[in-house]
Amino acid sequence: MSILVVVIAAAGTALVLQAQHENEQDAWNQAMVAAATFANSPGIAESLQSPDPTASL
């Protein structure tokens, strides 16, 4: 009986850890998409090379 409890607890822990990893991976992917979208926006390269990038952005 105690072996069954340990197996169920281990399986539950594995599922929780896997879900946490997937959530973190999804968040990272969304952040990368947002950064790539901003970086590829028209005028970003020119603005970053201007004397006052903050004002031009």
Rank of each mutant, 00 (worst) to 15 (best):
M1E: 10
S2V: 15
S2E: 10
I3C: 04
I3Q: 08
I3W: 06
L4D: 13
L4S: 10
V5Q: 07
V5S: 12
V6A: 05
V7E: 11
I8E: 11
I8G: 01
I8K: 01
I8A: 11
A9M: 10
A9S: 14
A10R: 05
A11E: 01
A11T: 13
G12F: 02
T13F: 07
A14P: 00
A14D: 00
A14M: 06
A14V: 07
L15V: 13
L15T: 08
V16L: 09
V16C: 07
L17E: 01
Q18W: 06
A19C: 02
Q20L: 09
Q20E: 00
H21L: 09
E22I: 09
E22A: 12
E22N: 14
N23H: 10
Q25G: 01
D26H: 07
D26M: 04
A27C: 02
A27Y: 06
W28R: 15
W28G: 02
N29P: 02
N29Y: 00
N29L: 12
N29M: 09
Q30R: 15
Q30C: 04
Q30S: 14
Q30P: 02
A31D: 08
A31R: 13
A31G: 05
M32W: 01
M32K: 13
V33S: 06
V33I: 14
A34K: 15
A34C: 04
A34Q: 12
A35M: 10
A36C: 04
A36E: 06
A36Q: 12
A36F: 01
A36N: 13
T37D: 09
T37N: 13
F38I: 13
F38A: 14
F38Q: 07
F38R: 09
S41D: 11
S41V: 05
S41E: 13
S41Q: 15
S41M: 11
P42M: 04
P42Y: 03
P42V: 05
G43P: 15
G43Y: 05
G43N: 12
G43L: 09
I44Y: 06
A45E: 13
A45M: 11
E46I: 13
S47F: 03
L48N: 06
L48D: 03
Q49C: 10
Q49E: 10
S50I: 05
P51E: 00
P51S: 07
P51N: 04
D52V: 11
D52P: 02
D52A: 08
D52T: 11
P53H: 03
P53C: 03
P53Q: 02
P53A: 02
T54W: 08
T54R: 08
T54M: 05
A55W: 04
A55M: 04
S56F: 00
S56K: 08
S56W: 00
S56G: 02
L57V: 15
